[in-house]
C-alpha cells in the first residue's frame, strides 16, 4: 500500500473551521439547526464540528449519531450482515434543518440510506450534506454535498481514510493505493 497524505496538521484544523463558518453563514445561531453524524466514521466529524461551533457561538448545539445499517441497499448482497452501531438522537427532528455529516462522500449510497434512516425520527425541514472529503466523479446516486472540506480525484481501488485526534491520535486524511 502506498500512502499519500492529503491533509493534516494546522491545515486540517483550518478546513474544519472554514466548514463551521460556512455553516454559520447559512444557519446563523443554530437555533433551528441540528447536526447528525453518520455511523461509524461520520460521528467524529459531527462531534468536532459541534465542538467548534459551541466555541464560536457559545451556545448549545444539538448533535446526534445515526446508524444506517438497517437501511443499506446491499443487505443479502454481501458476504454477511453488517453489525449495527448505536443510533443516538435525543431530540426531535420534525421541522428542523438537518446537516448530515460523513467523513468521506464516495458512491452516495450511504447518504441515500441515511436520508431514509433519518425519516424514522420525523420529517425534517431542510436537509443538507457536509463531507470532509469528496471523492469526485465516483457517484452511483445523484447526491452532492452542500459543504465540502477537500475534493479528491481517486479510482475505485484506492481508499480514503480520515483519522481523528480523539480516536486515532492525529488529524489526517490519507489516500491509500494498492502497489502495482
Amino acid at each position: 500500500m502506498q500512502n499519500l497524505t492529503l491533509l493534516d496538521g494546522p491545515k486540517f484544523q483550518i478546513t474544519i473551521q472554514r466548514l463551521c463558518r460556512q455553516l454559520i453563514e447559512n444557519h446563523n445561531d443554530f437555533s433551528n439547526a441540528i447536526l447528525i453524524g453518520i455511523q461509524p466514521r461520520g460521528i467524529y466529524l459531527a462531534r468536532r464540528v459541534a465542538d467548534e461551533l459551541r466555541k464560536i457561538l457559545n451556545k448549545p448545539i444539538l448533535q446526534g449519531d445515526l446508524d444506517i445499517t438497517f437501511y443499506r441497499d446491499d443487505f443479502r448482497r454481501r458476504e454477511g450482515p453488517l453489525v449495527p452501531n448505536q443510533t443516538k438522537i435525543d431530540f426531535i427532528i420534525e421541522g428542523k434543518n438537518v446537516v448530515l455529516m460523513d467523513d468521506v462522500l464516495w458512491t452516495g449510497r450511504t447518504i441515500r440510506a441515511a436520508m431514509d434512516a433519518m425519516l424514522a425520527f420525523g420529517r425534517p425541514g431542510k436537509v443538507e450534506l457536509l463531507t470532509l472529503v469528496d471523492r469526485r466523479y465516483s457517484r452511483h446516486i445523484p447526491v452532492t454535498a452542500d459543504y465540502t472540506g477537500i475534493e479528491v480525484d481517486s479510482i475505485a481501488s484506492q481508499k480514503v481514510v480520515v483519522s481523528w485526534k480523539e480516536t486515532d491520535g492525529e488529524d489526517k486524511i490519507v489516500l491509500l493505493s494498492e502497489e502495482l
Binding site: 438497517f70 437501511y71 443487505f75 431514509d116 425519516l119 424514522a120 425520527f121 420525523g122
Partner: peptide, 9 residues
C-alpha cells in the same frame, strides 16, 4: 422509536 420499522428484510 415512534417509527418501529426498518426496511432490511
Amino acid at each position: 422509536r415512534p417509527i418501529k420499522k426498518v426496511p432490511s428484510l
